[in-house]
Each structure stands twice: as C-alpha cells, then as structure tokens.
C-alpha cells in the first residue's frame, strides 16, 4: 500500500514542479547568456565596436534577468515547500481527507508516504538549483571561479565532519526529516480545533519552535557550549553532536507517531 500511496503523492506534484524546473532552467540560460554577452562586450567591446549593444539595453536586460533569475530561485524553494505542505493538508485534513482517511491504509503509512515524497521533492529541487549554478558557470565560463567556491565549501565541510565524523552527515538528513514531520504534526494538531484549523496548525508550529528554541538555549547554557573561535563551534550550535542528533531523532519519532495517532484516533474533519 505504501508504494501505491507514494505513487499518488508523487503524481500530485511532479507536473507542477517539472514546469517550474523548466522555467527556472530557461531563466538560468537566459541570465547566463546575457552575462556572457555583457562580460565579452566589457572585455572586448573596444576592439569590436561595430557589434556593440547600447549600455542602456545591457542595463535593462541585466537587471531584469538578474531579478527574474533570483526570484525564480527563491520562488522555486518556496514553491516546493508550499506544494509539500499543501499536499498533506488537502489530502489528509480537508475534503480529500474524507477519502484518504477511509482508505484501508494505516495513518502511519500515509505519514511515511508524505514524508518520503516530500523529501524526494526537496532533494530534486536542491539538485535543480545546483545544476542551475553549474550551467551558469559553464555558459559564462567562470567554472574555475565557481569551483573555488566549491573548494571553500568542501573545506568547511571537511573541517566540520573531520571533527564530528558521521554524526554531521546524519544530522543533515535528520534535520530534513524532522523539519517536514514537525509541519505535518502541526497540521494534525491543527485539525483538532473545531474552528480555525489553519491558525491552529500555524500556532502549534510556532509554539513548538519557540519551546524548542528555549529548551535548546537553556540546555546550551547548562552544558556550556564553549565557542572556540573555529567552525567547530558553529557546528556545535547547528548540530554535530550525538546528543543533539538523538534528541532530533526522538523529536521526529514523536511527531511521526503522535501525528499518525491523532489522524487515526482523533480525526476531526469538518
């Protein structure tokens, strides 16, 4: 049944996302070609004045395409997130919930399917965004410069992972899982309200964030994280310790099982 649920969860969003990926890549190519033309004119324009484009045109196209490309990048990240949340909300606790919750499928399978599909879409969007940067670098011919940034990123990553080892890799994965489950759980709690279910979900989410931040802050004070001035300190705040990881895994488990239990035993569809 999980495979079937997953099939429909992926089908629900893939078309919309594919169109958005195509638009983003088209804008990436347009932006990159424009930048390449601009750089070439700036570098070689004096020697080839016959083919020069007026500066005002460059100005207009560069600003427009930069805004569009940047907007598309941010928009794609937001849209992916919105689609994942919308799928859970509409499919589980609004009108479609009348069908989903009466299927001969456990609510844990529903939660798992939504989690897997959500993670896959997040991964795909990240891959498309990275691909966009590579395409830009390739067209503008600045791959060597981009690769320096890549080297810097690898260096930072190595610094952190050398110190913490596998726990940091796991932390990145658990963070992604926990983030989605926290939202799903908040929606499950929100539907318990007889009125204003969406506000209930938003309130639950914000409440959880505040409580967790306070808890982690107090814990940090008690345990006494010591900033050593290195990247390792940064890692200690964002993750990188087994205790932190286990805490997040436990949180994820609570969100998952409690959310599924609420849908199974405390459903409250309008």
């Amino acid at each position: 049944m999980l495979r079937k649920l997953l099939k429909y969860d992926l089908k629900a969003n893939y078309l919309c996302l594919l169109v958005c990926y195509a638009v983003y890549m088209a804008l990436t190519i347009a932006f990159s070609l424009n930048m390449r033309g601009l750089i070439r004119q700036e570098m070689f324009g004096a020697a080839d004045s016959a083919g020069m484009v007026p500066e005002s045109v460059w100005m207009f196209t560069t600003i427009s395409l930069t805004v569009l490309w940047g907007g598309a990048m941010i928009g794609l990240m937001i849209l992916t997130f919105v689609l994942i949340i919308r799928r859970f909300y509409t499919n589980m606790v609004s009108d479609q919930g009348y069908l989903s919750l009466t299927l001969p499928v456990s609510t844990r399978q529903h939660m798992l399917s939504k989690l897997i599909s959500g993670l896959l879409f997040e991964l795909l969007t990240t891959a498309v965004l990275v691909a966009g940067f590579i395409v830009t670098g390739w067209i503008i011919d600045i791959l060597p410069i981009l690769s320096r940034f890549g080297d810097l990123f690898v260096y930072m990553w190595d610094e952190i992972t050398d110190y913490y080892g596998i726990v940091y890799y796991l932390d990145v994965a658990v963070n992604a899982v926990r983030g989605l489950l926290m939202i799903y759980f908040s929606i499950c709690v929100g539907q318990l309200f007889n009125k204003h279910k969406v506000w209930g979900a938003i309130g639950t989410y914000l409440g959880l964030v505040i409580v967790l931040e306070l808890f982690m802050g107090i814990l940090a004070l008690i345990i006494g994280f010591s900033p050593s001035g290195s990247l390792v300190w940064l890692a200690s705040l964002t993750g990188g310790s087994w205790g932190n990881l286990i805490f997040k895994v436990v949180q994820s488990g609570v969100y998952f099982f409690l959310g599924a239990w609420i849908l199974e035993k405390k459903a409250n569809l309008e």
Binding site: L101, T102, K265, K266, A267, N268
Partner: peptide
C-alpha cells in the same frame, strides 16, 4: 456517519 468511518472520534 462520520463516526462510523473514523472521521470523528
């Protein structure tokens, strides 16, 4: 009807 379908508790 909703109770019979598990849509309410």
């Amino acid at each position: 009807i909703k109770l019979a379908n598990g849509l309410l508790s």
